[in-house]
Design a protein around this nucleic acid. Structure first.
Length: 271
DNA sequence: CAATCGTCCTGCGGGC
DNA sequence: TGCCCGCAGGACGATT
């Protein structure tokens, strides 16, 4: 459920916490989620690509972490990490991997449902993987003309299903796809080919605005996952996801699209 | 070739 | 009260 704004928020925190530090030893608790061996190396950069966290190492390798549904980090330093070994007892059982850094701090990657993954790749393989993902919706190159061109590739797809396809466009998940479509006034079942030029313009604007606004609020903290700490406040601004009525007080409809729950307003979103 | 389906996983809540 | 079942869904591989 962490999508672009949540991952962006996490990456900004990680940049302060781990960038420039060296990985000492590593403790792996869920081997099947960790692919490749993590080297003892300097962390030279932390970036985001789509919903992935990309950690660049001095060894020129990359650690690519995907959070899946419930992946999250816990960082502990100083007294706190000595006292608790870095983690609350009930969090300990969700540890996937712990990174012990050269300044004595510990970064834990935890995941309840084990949909996440950690992979270590060579520079070449990392670039290949990252290039396969669609364009970043918040990049300066993602202009309205670029979006129009992109839409030609999936003319026959349902607009919501296309927004969720990471190879088509990067970083949008089930929550933001629904929020973006509500803000753009477009029924999620619409086929891309049916969108008018005005609607494409609205959709492009809604993507940028919704994602930027969510980042300003440090993402969305979803109620169900109370045990996952998150400081995000965008849930206050959700207009359809998990709600019964839209901001205009119209009752919402819930359907399944691409076997994903989808809320929308039949009155505000043109079919 | 693209769209769809099954799979992984665990906590939670609804229903009885 | 407690148990069981279904739901939540990101991403990938298999299938049609």
């Amino acid at each position: 459920m962490p999508e672009l704004p949540e991952v962006e928020t996490i990456v900004r925190q990680l940049q302060k916490q781990i960038k420039g530090k060296k990985i000492g030893h590593v403790r792996i608790r869920v081997p099947k989620l960790v692919h490749g061996s993590i080297p003892q190396s300097l962390i030279t950069d932390v970036r985001r690509r789509a919903k992935a966290i990309v950690i660049k190492l001095g060894s020129k390798q990359y650690i690519i972490i995907r959070l899946g549904m419930t992946g999250h980090f816990h960082y502990a330093k100083g007294k706190k990490q000595q006292k608790e070994k870095g983690l609350e007892p009930q969090e300990q059982k969700y540890i996937v991997v712990q990174f012990f850094l050269n300044d004595g701090s510990i970064l834990s990657f935890n995941d309840i449902r084990k949909f996440g993954s950690v992979q270590v790749l060579s520079s070449e393989k990392a670039q290949t993987l990252l290039k396969k993902m669609g364009p970043e919706p918040l990049s300066s190159g993602f202009t309205l003309p670029a979006f129009r061109t992109l839409l030609q590739q999936k003319r026959n797809a349902h607009v919501k299903v296309a927004l969720l396809d990471q190879h088509f466009i990067a970083g949008i998940g089930n929550i933001y796809a629904q929020e973006i479509l509500y803000r753009a006034g477009i029924d999620p079942r619409r086929k891309i080919v049916s969108l008018s030029d005005t609607e494409i313009r609205k959709l492009h604007k809604a993507m940028k605005n919704t994602l930027n606004q969510a980042i300003r609020h440090h993402g969305t903290t979803v109620q169900d996952y109370v045990h996952i700490e998150g400081s995000g406040g965008f849930q206050r601004y959700l207009q359809v996801y998990g709600r019964e009525k839209c901001p205009q007080k119209h009752p919402l409809t819930k359907i399944y699209l691409g076997s994903r729950g989808t809320y929308f307003c039949p009155k505000c979103q043109k079919s």
